[in-house]
Design a protein around this nucleic acid. Structure first.
Lengths: 120, 120
DNA sequence: TATAGTGTTCTATTTATATATAACACTATT
DNA sequence: AATAGTGTTATATATAAATAGAACACTATA
């Protein structure tokens, strides 16, 4: 599921990489103890330099999401997959947004804005 | 509704500014012909340099979202507020996510991921 | 003990982002 | 004509992000 980084989005590559890995964990595609691809494979997958990979992985380590062992690899620290019930609700909204012709980018903006304005 | 830019998010300031302005248009707070605050006011509002403001506004002009007249100001080209029905659906999901303790950042990742994986 | 496969560090260079500061140009009003 | 309020352009500087390329360090295994 890991995709090449979008070099024209304006979003720093290392952030895109962090986000993709976090997403895989959220979706349960990467669980506790899972070993990530090697840094050199990640270089190819994301199509960026090793140093950029390392920057992303280092930050995920700082956040306690990944661990690493020299000579061995990078690992997911803990399972953090999201409740499928929640995913279902999201799927339903996404279908609705798509059917109304709203694009992803607009949807994300809208959700962020509603989130920040909703006084709950 | 325009907020100070978050200088520690990693997201370039000019992008945050573009997004905030787009959001105001989406929410209908800025409609066709609306004049934006002056660039020097925007400098204060977003707490960045004029050049950063100009970069954001220039890009929004390129996207056809804003127009400008020298000596006068910046204007919203066309109304693009989102259907309130859609906003309501989003509100409902946001409430649900919040009640389940999911944070904004995780929600956005999840939505983006579901969006890209949903084969409709 | 040698080697292949890992992660890690370092230096140099380039490009993008952001700031500070100043001056210039156009518009409307006095 | 002058002025105040707009947008605009320019130069210099600083910091962050990304690349390239090489070397180093640890682990497991042949």
């Amino acid at each position: 599921m890991l995709r090449k980084v979008d070099k024209h989005s304006g979003i720093p590559a290392y952030l895109q990489i962090m986000n993709q890995i976090k997403s895989e964990i959220l979706l349960g595609n990467l669980r506790a103890e899972s070993q990530l691809p090697t840094v050199r494979e990640l270089e190819t997958i994301f199509d960026v330099n090793v140093n950029t990979i390392l920057k992303a992985l280092d930050k995920l380590k700082s956040e306690g999401i990944l661990s690493s062992e020299q000579g061995i690899g990078y690992f997911v620290v803990r399972d953090a997959s999201i409740d499928p019930e929640i995913t279902d609700e999201v799927k339903s909204l996404v279908r609705s947004l798509k059917s109304k012709g709203v694009d992803l980018y607009t949807s994300l903006l809208l959700i962020e804005e509603v989130w920040k304005n909703e006084k709950l």
